[in-house]
């Protein structure tokens, strides 16, 4: 798989509400080869502090070699990234990691996203629609402000969307996983990304009835398989770890030790 270390010009900065931002970048090399759930390592500052790049899954692709990144301000790196202006260059390394695998040829496909975990699922929905598959999308967040723009974007793609918010301000009042029991029994593949407790609940729901892939997020220094900082335990083995950057970020739900 080709990888690039490249400066990409920011062509749009959107503040989607709360602390959530979306950047659109001119990244033709990466856009040409990136697949859903792959990520890029982004330099958030211009100096040595913060030192490390931050991993972001690609949120979507646009015509003209553009990619989008969706993020929330959670620390100093993302706070700096939120100050990015149109016309500025950002240094990206990528695309990195293993992508979601295609769904089986028959059966319905469902995407379950929570919070910023929605980011890679939009790109996956774009890809599925190109292939003539229309996924059912379940999105959850704390509050309506986090979901309004994303709901509209999924609608514009042509996906049926069901929403939930913890505060009840939009859609189902509660957790997105509470929408799972209403799913059709025709669902043959489920893709999920979001907070670990949410993905654990999705994995439990799928059990061995529904094929389930999850995209994980960890701290990582390099994203290249060199720092070995992104280790997670392998189920049933006390002497082995996966590295999220190389073995993942996508795993079969059964390959992960859930809390």
């Amino acid at each position: 798989m080709p990888e690039f270390q490249t400066n990409c010009t920011v062509v749009q900065v959107e503040h989607l509400g709360a602390d959530i931002f979306r950047l659109t970048l001119e990244a033709p090399d990466i856009a040409e080869v990136v697949r859903p759930a792959q990520f890029v390592m982004v330099s958030c500052g211009t100096d040595q502090d913060p030192l490390l790049r931050r991993p972001f899954s690609v949120h979507g692709k646009q015509a003209g070699g553009r990619i989008q990144l969706l993020f929330k301000i959670v620390g100093r790196g993302t706070a700096l990234l939120a100050q990015t202006r149109v016309g500025q260059d950002l240094s990206l390394v990528g695309p990195l990691g293993r992508a979601f695998r295609p769904p089986p040829p028959t059966g319905e496909v469902c995407l379950v996203g929570g919070g910023l975990g929605i980011a890679p699922l939009f790109f996956l929905a774009q890809r599925l629609l190109e292939q003539g598959r229309i996924p059912l999308v379940l999105l959850g967040a704390g509050s309506a402000v986090e979901l309004r723009q994303l709901r509209q974007d999924f609608h514009e793609l042509g996906c049926p969307v069901h929403l939930s918010t913890v505060d009840g301000s939009l859609g189902h009042h509660g957790l997105v996983t509470e929408l799972l029991p209403a799913l059709s029994d025709k669902v043959g593949k489920l893709y999920t990304c979001g907070p670990v407790p949410m993905m654990a609940a999705v994995a439990r729901f799928c059990g061995d009835r529904i094929a389930c892939e999850v995209s994980l997020e960890t701290h990582m220094a390099c994203g290249l398989g060199a720092c070995l900082g992104c280790a997670i335990p392998v189920p049933g083995r006390s002497d082995a770890y996966w590295h999220v950057c190389k073995h993942g970020p996508v795993f079969d739900a059964a390959e992960v030790v859930w809390p």
Binding site: D49, P50, L51, M220, A221, L228, G229, C230, P233
Partner: peptide
């Protein structure tokens, strides 16, 4: 060697 359990890395001022 399998190495240590996570978390294994943390960023610090101008370092890790």
């Amino acid at each position: 060697r399998a190495g240590n359990p996570p978390p294994r890395i943390v960023e610090t001022a101008c370092g890790m």
